[in-house]
């Protein structure tokens, strides 16, 4: 892991040292056919039960990193350990939320939300009951029989989130889930996500290119840089989330961290 500026971290937020990290990313490299080098030795740990963001300029390998962790893309070198075991394929302890939602256009909201369970062979009655529950939790009750093309982008992503929550995986991997949502709705989503996650004991890896979003939702932020694609810093903003969102977004800690991460990224962009 790169340096954690613990001295500058204001609010408490002690690092959980009791357990192993949920995910350990060690020295990942990825070269795509045709010679595109997407990752040049990326390493970081993801503490259990926390939300870790990956942030960086576009094309720096955020999606590639997340898909390697998901087991959807094979790394060229390095290793991903989940609960101490190296992984090379998808597994039931990880669930993915896609940037473009990846909903089946021919299936209803209910079937889409239950699809992860359907693929795992859960009976229809059981999986639909679970899916209905999560559809309600993501505020889509009443839309069970709608089709994706009848929903707004934000609502579609809620279906994607319900599907990932329904399989009850310990680790949620989210690739810019709110990228195609308006700014106002986006803020509401961030709050909804935090509220949802507070009742679920999940480890979340959250890719974003918005510094504000990263600081607002994360316990830990992994800053990636481009050329070479490496981790430049891992920071723990430690924003006090018990306050209401307006308050948080105006608090000095929050603004300070936004500024700091901005500087960090700026340094690399100027080089």
């Amino acid at each position: 892991m790169t340096d954690i500026p613990r001295t500058t971290s204001k609010a408490g937020n002690p690092v959980d040292k009791t357990g192993e990290p949920a995910v350990r990313v060690h020295n990942l490299t990825k070269e795509f056919p045709g010679g595109v080098r997407a990752l040049d030795g990326v390493s970081f740990d993801v503490p259990r039960g926390e939300l870790t963001s990956i942030i960086g300029p576009s094309g720096c390998g955020k999606t590639t990193t997340l898909k390697i962790i998901a087991g959807l893309v094979e790394a060229t070198g390095g290793e991903v350990e989940v609960d101490g075991t190296p992984v090379h394929a998808p597994g039931p302890e990880r669930a993915f939320v896609f940037q473009d939602f990846a909903l089946m256009p021919w299936a209803t909201v209910l079937r889409n939300a239950a699809f992860g369970l359907e693929l795992r062979g859960v009976s229809r009655q059981e999986r639909e009951a679970i899916a209905r529950d999560y559809i309600a939790k993501v505020n889509l009750a009443g839309f069970e029989d709608a089709y994706p093309h009848q929903l707004s982008g934000g609502m579609r992503q809620r279906v994607g989130l319900a599907r990932a929550l329904a399989v009850d995986a310990d680790i949620l991997l989210m690739d810019e889930p709110f990228a195609s949502v308006d700014e106002q709705i986006r803020r509401k989503f961030q709050e909804d996500l935090l509220r949802l996650l507070s009742d679920e004991d999940k480890t979340v890896i959250f890719v974003t290119h918005s510094i504000e979003e990263a600081v607002y939702v994360s316990d830990q932020v992994v800053i990636l840089t481009r050329g070479p694609s490496r981790v430049s810093k891992v920071v723990r903003p430690g924003v006090d989330r018990d306050a209401d969102s307006e308050h948080i977004r105006r608090s000095p800690t929050y603004l300070d961290w936004v500024e700091r991460i901005w500087d960090e990224l700026q340094d690399y962009l100027e080089k």
């Binding site: 993915f96 990846a102 992860g116 693929l119």
Partner: peptide
């Protein structure tokens, strides 16, 4: 859509299921 295929794989679909249902 490639992400539909990735979605299926990420939730553990076998190749046979991936082709026949997605």
């Amino acid at each position: 859509n490639p992400s539909l295929v990735e979605m299926g794989r990420s939730f553990g679909a076998s190749n046979r299921v991936l082709y026949s249902t997605i």
